[in-house]
């Protein structure tokens, strides 16, 4: 140890150290830069996409996303209208949501309220693993296993029974493609994929509800189900709604699995038993081979729509979940 030798640093070095507060100025600057860059990144993404879609926006205006404009997606004539793919995104996500919500809330209730402690950890693991499976793997399994074994028989049954219904008839018009590539297939795969997301967030919402709420309800003689249904669910409703909207955002943005099972065509009418496109799948399928600047620009505009929709949904979901957390902390 040479503590006895005191070397004096040059004056300018001392001054510099003092000015930098021994490096803290620099450190704080780095922290600020990193933080600001995260915010800037989101804005940059928005601006860049907006900018790149200018060609298509000027050419087609609002008719591009209008449900009533005549639909056409013709790279040869440079005529583009995005409604069929927007419709595909909406219908698949809504069906997925309708199917996934009861499941996810049930699972959340089981995991938060009922699961015996021994089972809780492994069950939580499994639900989270379901969310971790890469979406291409879902897609591969979808094409070769899920479509032929589940979707085709189900689609045929739906076409046979529902095709004549007065209101839903148009949605269930057959024939179902032999391969099973259809909006129905995409919707069912999406159901499997978003269930763990909604379930995990709803479970956390339920777990955040104070014990006193349960105890008060049980003490009044309510059964466990009545406690859950009439006390806990209303208490956490906005949080669970947030989880559902988060799931909707994921369903709309999900790309690979959907691209692999939806059949990728701009035709297909309104029926869920026919193949179609979603906003994400049309970009995935066509962008690398975009034939003209207008085609690329139109696809980027679809990306802008996708971006805006998911942004709004996420902001709404976060706000809802956050409002529950605030409520629980307040009590």
């Amino acid at each position: 140890m040479n503590t006895t030798i005191v070397t004096k640093r040059p004056r300018w070095q001392q001054q510099l150290r003092y000015k930098l507060q021994h490096g803290d100025r620099l450190w704080k600057l780095l922290l600020l830069l990193a933080s600001i860059s995260v915010v800037v990144l989101v804005l940059w993404i928005a601006w860049r996409l907006w900018d790149q879609s200018a060609l298509s926006r000027h050419q087609f205006g609002w008719a591009f996303i209008s449900p009533w404009a005549p639909s056409s997606w013709n790279p040869a004539l440079d005529k583009f209208q995005a409604w069929p793919s927007i419709y595909g995104s909406l219908i698949t996500s809504i069906i997925a949501l309708l199917l996934a919500v009861p499941f996810s809330v049930g699972i959340a209730i089981f995991l938060a309220e009922l699961a015996p402690p021994v089972l809780r950890a492994p069950l939580n693991y499994m639900v989270e693993m379901l969310a971790a499976v890469p979406s291409v793997v879902y897609g591969l399994w979808g094409i070769y296993v899920f479509l032929p074994l589940v979707v085709v028989p189900l689609g045929n049954a739906l076409a046979a029974t529902g095709g004549q219904l007065p209101l839903l008839g148009g949605l269930l018009k057959g024939p179902m493609p032999v391969s099973g590539l259809s909006r129905l297939g995409a919707a069912l795969i999406l159901t499997i994929m978003i269930t763990p997301t909604i379930a995990a967030v709803s479970r956390d919402v339920l777990l955040a509800i104070p014990r006193s709420q349960r105890e008060a309800s049980l003490a009044l003689g309510a059964t466990q189900w009545e406690t859950i249904w009439q006390v806990l669910i209303p208490y956490g409703l906005s949080g669970i709604l947030g989880a559902v909207i988060l799931g909707l955002g994921r369903a709309i943005g999900e790309t690979m699995a959907v691209t692999m099972v939806i059949g990728n065509t701009t035709g297909g009418g309104n029926s869920i038993l026919r193949p179609g496109y979603t906003m994400a799948s049309i970009i995935a399928n066509e962008f690398a081979e975009a034939v003209s600047d207008m085609h690329a620009s139109a696809l980027i505009e679809v990306g802008v729509v996708l971006f805006v929709v998911t942004l709004l949904l996420n902001a709404l979901a976060r706000w809802l979940v956050w409002s529950v957390n605030r409520k629980t902390m307040g009590s």
Partner: peptide, 17 residues
Amino acid sequence: FSTDLLAGIPSIVIGLF
């Protein structure tokens, strides 16, 4: 907030960007 939004942006849109 930006982190949450960034996590919610579909990965295909990130690809476009």
